[in-house]
Design a protein around this nucleic acid. Structure first.
Lengths: 357, 357
DNA sequence: ATGAAAGCGCTAACAC
DNA sequence: GTGTTAGCGCTTTCAT
């Protein structure tokens, strides 16, 4: 409504005002503002000076309308401050800006009726040129996503089968993450590894579960029952209380650090030592992971690299609608070994520190 | 570029296409899409059906251009996944959407040359109707912010003196947060409270420092030297190592939970018990706070309420440019008492558990 | 309660 | 290199 005055009136300067002041045509101003060639340095300077003097700022809406491109990308995130999603969002923002686009953000709350489809819809209403879906969860309506979306979509954190028509890429490394964690525990000498999983509706949780399962299979180990969790430390704690009485549990891979911390707390309260009796590895490397007791062994995810790489592909798909998608390469995963993991207790005479459950 | 076909062509349906199909004028379609009155239910239905059949979706750019309002709000955040800023962002997103606006996000990295001013500028280029600055830090160029910004600005986390011309509100409660923490410790019987502060460039850090200082003064207690930190658990740990040898330290208020956890870790490693020897209170109530050892006493900030309330004011300022700002009321602060705080050790015979530093 | 005409401020062709 | 002419798809008046 109220805009900065070109001079003293209540209305914003337009390119034609700049043109008049610089003594050129409006189109020339447009050329200069867009950094096009075929403008003499001399004219360019005059235009820039005039623009600065007037406090000119080009009108985004008019640009978008005339060009048919909004130069913006929308991202759908979960409405949580969870470390993983939040970190990914920050990475996406940076990558989007580096690519010269603006970023629109829409949250989906878990249990939101509209869900991801609704979020995508509102982004489409805003006229974004591309969409990033970060850490998606299962929703009704996923299937018809591809039918309704006419812009490229980047899905971060979903397995390839989510991909549809213009859904171009999915750059995530969750199965590697789980493998790194599980292998670490196995190499330490544990006969098997329990898994404290995330909510099954999350692709990230399922990926981790599958990675754990595959690793166990590759080592020829028996697969213990999956322990359900919901990412929260509270769910890790609840799991820990149940597990504490089971002496056969010597190693647990928790699908994120919060659950790992809750788990450890319950174990400790029950008199089980970590890592002497039970080893625990988390996933994320949240800021406090190195400072809890005991410092947490965990797997770090390259959020920035994932976001950047994925966005490169999305922008490519936006700007070259007919080109084939370029392959995505998984960024490296990093195992951070700290003090919550160790070899299993008395390997030769298992199971008699206390009467087994 | 490529848009969903109205039918089978490569171009999106426009309101006039809907109008033709419904047998009404284009203006009537506009009325229906905007939920205006003075449209008979009968016509409304026909238009809605036609729009649905065509897959019509109104063009945001054209709307913004014609109306002069983009119906979007921009938010400037720090490029971190820190719990506080991330939570605030989520709250802002929800509030923005509830108000019927779209959300543009721009990060400022700490040490970013352009800084907040640059971020605000890019938001202005995008034509936002209002701006939210979340958890600002000191920057060069703050002063001229008001001179350059022609839309209302909501500053979350800054003291009133940041306010300038169209900077309408600042809804934050940091000094209350600090008071709640400090008072709790004092009421427990500690003669004074040390403060592990955040980086002084952050308004939030300074607010907490001032709140702590004021509370100490109100109780007539001596103010120990401020312990510098940078929000990170690592800085808390470093502080803890230095403090561990000083028996006069019996209570510490850390400006956030991460630092509190690092601090506790260092204290524990040095053989100081928490809370028996030293009480620690954090701030934020991060998800793992209840599950670290010992469970952390902390102060919870009402991010959602703060964001909602602030946004209400911002939207008001956007939609009623000439109205006076309505006063902001601070949302309630919540002290969460857990196991990291207790009365000081042997109150009657102070300072001889170990030789003082 | 509905319609016609006139832009919003820019980019896109195409001239010169 | 630079200018001219048309729109982009809506919202606004203002009629009716």
């Amino acid at each position: 409504m109220a805009r900065l005055a070109g001079r003293s009136t209540g209305t914003a300067p337009r390119s034609i005002d700049v043109a008049r002041l610089a003594g050129v045509s409006q189109k020339t101003v447009s050329r200069v503002m867009n950094g096009e060639q075929y403008v003499s340095d001399h004219v360019r300077r005059r235009v820039l000076d005039a623009a600065a003097e007037l406090g000119y700022r080009r009108n985004h809406a008019a640009r978008a309308l005339a060009s048919g491109r909004a130069r913006s990308i929308g991202v759908v995130t979960l409405g949580t401050a969870l470390y993983g999603p939040a970190s990914l969002l920050m990475g996406v923002e940076r990558a989007v800006r580096d690519a010269g686009y603006a970023l629109h953000v829409v949250n989906t709350m878990e249990g939101d009726a509209a869900g991801i489809a609704g979020a995508v819809d509102s982004l489409l209403d805003q006229g974004v040129d591309g969409i990033v879906i970060s850490e998606p969860i299962d929703e009704e309506g996923d299937a018809d996503l591809s039918r309704r979306v006419d812009v490229p979509v980047l899905v971060l954190g979903a397995p390839p089968q989510f991909a549809a028509s213009r859904v171009v890429t999915a750059g995530i490394v969750s199965d590697q993450l789980a493998r790194a964690a599980t292998e670490h525990l196995l190499e330490l000498g544990h006969t098997t590894v329990h898994h404290l999983a995330g909510p099954p509706r999350w692709y990230a949780a399922r990926d981790r579960l599958e990675g754990w399962r595959a690793t166990l299979a590759a080592y020829g180990r028996r697969e213990p029952p999956v322990i359900p969790g919901d990412w929260s430390a509270a769910s890790g704690y609840a799991a820990g209380r149940r597990l504490a009485s089971d002496d056969s549990v010597t190693a647990v891979f928790a699908a994120n650090d919060d659950m790992a911390i809750g788990l450890i707390r319950a174990l400790l309260e029950a008199g089980r030592r970590v890592p002497e009796d039970v080893s625990v590895v988390g996933l994320d490397d949240i800021p406090v992971a190195a400072y809890v007791t005991p410092p947490l062994t965990t797997v770090r995810q390259p959020f920035d690299a994932t976001a950047q790489d994925g966005l490169k592909h999305l922008v490519h798909a936006i700007e070259h609608p007919d080109a084939n998608p370029i392959p995505v390469n998984d960024p490296p995963v990093e195992l951070v070994v700290r003090a919550s993991t160790a070899p299993p207790p008395h390997r030769t005479t298992p199971n008699h520190r206390r009467t087994s459950a």
